[in-house]
Design a protein around this nucleic acid. Structure first.
Lengths: 239, 239
DNA sequence: GCAAAAGTGTTATTCTTACACCCATGA
DNA sequence: TCATGGGTGTAAGAATAACACTTTTGC
């Protein structure tokens, strides 16, 4: 069962990290951090953060650790995306990459990185990427948009307390289309995934909006069997 | 980047294979083939078919090859399920398994296997499984049921020409609930995924039903970016 | 004719969507 | 008072679901 060949096979874990960052005109921009490769192949080209799997590490742990190490950020959500294993995806070695995707809060991603080889990019304006990472990001974006619509994934982008307009802007930035405020309010209220706190946000130059929080009592709607297990064993991650 | 540890890491590719087999009372039973392990660990226990990744093999190719080798069956559909990598999922070595799931036609699965260590089991009545394969099958079942509802996955179970009642029975067997024949007909007709051939099935002791075929002109509804690529490069698999 | 499944029609209900309009605040 | 977004109401249209009914065959 052990894989041993002339061409050595290595296993890597990479992560597509998403955040909503404040744009020039105060809009929200879906962004992700990339690292510049400092060695061949594809030296100098931007790529997804990634690294090897530790000897006693779970795959998700490896993704989380690598995320923290290279970006200094803490994931609010972490989910496996796909395993990529085309024989020719790396020119030299045979590399199978198990790719995760993650969400981090907008505040944590506000500052830039110390390392000039790590940088934020807008999701709709990426540089050319190394290996098959362009396809990987494309797939991660598709998954993010799909999953947002039938799960309460958006809390990964927000603070514990938020207004419904903030939540709506998360949806609009990710899905890249305007949503009717009234209908959005009803949609999210009837879903039961959100609870009003009674508090109101002051200081706006209009009617003070109510603050909401996510309903921790209610789980996901129709969670898959893997999510059920992981949330029971390690709450907080992979909700 | 190469993973080299005291405890050797091996990469395996396994597959959950689904088929609809004829049950005792002529009903359709969702079934899957399992192989009995002939060595430790878990010697004698039933497990998913699987094996190592070949040096120049794509992950999906490895899954398909292994499927043909151990069961003699040809996959009609093949999709990656998940990568499992818990450090303790195998008692001895560290094994990361990239698991695929597949559909094979009911006719191909009609006969039993020559090898007594390969056997069909009903999906809702499985024996205890080795490693974490029980969880894997549970997840594969969840994916199959979910995906059936928004894709034309059912053709993996059927012949090129079929009646709408046969198609409905596929749905009923997989989803494990009765569907209204009239509503089902309209649902599937308006979806445009199916085309009437004009031919009729004779020999029934009631009104002869029309034969349909799947609409090859129309692609999947909202296919993910990976599926788009694979269907363009190798049509037939992973539709 | 009778049974059985094919195939069609009809209606109630729920979900979605568009959009009008009132409310509460700062300037 | 006005501008601005918060928040509510409403009604048309689409999708869903339950079920009655007609059609065409074999026996």
């Amino acid at each position: 069962m052990t894989a041993q060949f002339a061409r050595p096979l290595s296993l890597a874990v990479s992560t597509v990290i998403f955040s909503l960052r404040r744009g020039a005109d105060d809009s929200m921009v879906l962004s992700l951090p990339l690292v510049r490769r400092i060695r061949a192949p594809h030296k100098g080209v931007w790529a997804l953060p990634g690294g090897p799997l530790g000897p006693d590490e779970d795959l998700a742990q490896a993704a989380g650790r690598n995320l923290r190490d290279t970006t200094g950020l803490e994931p609010r959500y972490l989910e496996q995306l796909y395993a990529f294993g085309q024989p020719d995806r790396s020119p030299d070695n045979r590399v199978v990459s198990i790719v995760y995707w993650a969400l981090v809060g907008g505040d944590e991603s506000a500052t830039n990185f110390d390392d000039e080889n790590v940088q934020w990019f807008a999701a709709d304006n990426l540089p050319p990427l190394a290996f098959d990472h362009g396809l990987i990001v494309e797939y991660a974006l598709w998954r993010l948009r799909n999953k947002l619509e039938y799960s309460r994934l958006a809390h990964g982008f927000l603070e514990p307390k938020f207004t419904l307009a903030q939540l709506r802007r998360v949806y609009e930035a990710v899905l890249q289309r305007r949503l009717d405020p009234g209908n959005f309010r009803r949609m999210v209220e009837t879903s039961g995934q959100v609870v009003p706190t009674g508090e109101h946000l002051a200081g706006t130059k209009h009617r003070p909006p109510q603050l909401y929080r996510f309903n921790t009592a209610q789980g996901l709607i129709d969670p898959d069997p893997l999510t059920v297990r992981t949330t029971l064993t390690q709450p907080g991650v992979a909700s």
